[in-house]
Amino acid sequence: MQDIMQSEIDAWRLQVKKGTLELAVLALLNSRPSYGLELLDRLNASGLDVRDGTIYPLLSRLRTEKKVSTKWVDETSGHAHKYYALTEKGMQILEGMIVAWREHKSAIEHAIGKSK
């Protein structure tokens, strides 16, 4: 019974992550451009456990939608990295997403507060 409840909570947590990963990626890229693995490290350091395979299809989509731009950089040590940076469109969408997220978070906190 405990296992079933935990798996339901995990499934719900997955849905929440699914809906918010794009916001987290755009927000991190807004603070500074990053390449894929560096971005993964930053996401995981924030407590969002994201697998390697998830990040590139998302970045590819963001690029198709012109929310991010890319640039290959030959590092002085090691190999070349493809850096992602927010475009003007990406910044505008991020601002809108942050407002929507705060409104949503406030509404949920309000609902949780009433349930106690």
Binding site: Y35, G36, L37, R51, D52, G53, Y56, G78, H79, A80, H81, K82
Partner: peptide, 22 residues
Amino acid sequence: KELWSHLQERLERGQLELSNDF
């Protein structure tokens, strides 16, 4: 090219888990 760069760096860090991650 991007994936190659990623996998090489994972390998250098000793963190390569190809089938699990991709």
